[in-house]
Amino acid sequence: MSEAASIYSVDKVLLVAIRDNITDTDIINLQEDLSERIVNEAARGVVIDIAALEIVDTFVGRILAQLSSISRLLAAETYIVGMRPAVAMTLVELGMDLPGSKTALSLSHALRSLKAKGLA
């Protein structure tokens, strides 16, 4: 498993914690690990936690968009959580408002939504 992210299983939901120094190589590993685990564990929900990220540039923004698309294609509802307010404002100015990704304020908000839909 790559050092730049770890995947935990919480209430049948896969929680992906992204660390600050993620690289190109890590991303490929992470995409592989996550898609395998979604299928193997029949996960219906994925929560990507970016609270550790001080900034999100276009590089990381694209990673987040790709991870959301992969999970969605594998039928897991996906939330991005833990975005700092300054990061949200900066992403809008970069022209990257992550249109394909659902966001929630925190892990517990995302879990509540997933539970309400019977996915956790």
Binding site: I55, R84, M89, T90, L94
Partner: peptide, 17 residues
């Protein structure tokens, strides 16, 4: 300030990459 720092560091990340 936090917002100024986030904006500038993000720009630096783009240019360095």
């Amino acid at each position: 300030r936090a917002l100024r720092k986030t904006r500038f560091v993000t720009a630096v990340s783009e240019i360095a990459r």
